[in-house]
């Protein structure tokens, strides 16, 4: 049996009626006038040097508002949420260190256009050796970050 007391009984949550009927409001549900969408170009390599990024075709696409690469955002510093001692850039234009690391960001009038533009950005990489094994990483035979002394 449900009760309204917080002690000794089951309390039905007051937020649940909205959540179970699809009436809750999450950030993605909020529409803002003139809203734009961002999409990211991400590394397909676990470890690679970024040699060049060609955004010209994407820039010319209808609905594309802006394209950012590392040099455009460098002045903003590294990612604010730091989990490691090594600063992580907002966008990486140098050496990517995991699959999915962002190298460019597109802002467009809608998400489909943004995604199309991502597909029209050409990044040239020089793949580097990747360490995919914890034990191997612990030997430090290859440093993930040159600025550190050890991977551990």
């Amino acid at each position: 049996m449900s009760t309204t007391s917080a002690l000794g009984g089951v309390v039905r949550r007051r937020e649940d009626p909205a959540l179970i009927q699809g009436k809750a409001r999450y950030v993605d549900d909020i529409k803002v006038r003139g809203e734009t969408s961002a999409a990211f170009v991400r590394s397909p390599f676990a470890h690679a040097k970024v040699l060049s990024i060609d955004t010209s075709e994407a820039e010319a696409m209808d609905g594309v508002i802006a394209i950012f690469t590392a040099s455009d955002v460098e002045h903003m510093g590294p990612l604010a949420a730091q989990v490691a001692i090594v600063p992580r850039p907002l966008l990486n234009g140098d050496v990517v260190r995991h699959v999915g690391e962002a190298v460019a960001m597109v802002v467009a009038t809608d998400r489909y256009v943004a995604q199309d533009a991502v597909d029209a950005i050409f990044v040239e990489y020089e793949p580097l050796e990747a360490i995919v094994d914890l034990k191997d990483a612990a030997t430090d035979r290859l440093l993930v970050h040159d600025s550190t002394e050890s991977n551990t």
């Binding site: 449900s2 039905r12 949550r13 959540l19 179970i20």
Partner: peptide, 11 residues
């Protein structure tokens, strides 16, 4: 779901 606490964030 409401009665048996079948949700937290509801997403």
């Amino acid at each position: 779901f409401w009665e048996r606490h079948g949700l937290q964030c509801g997403y």
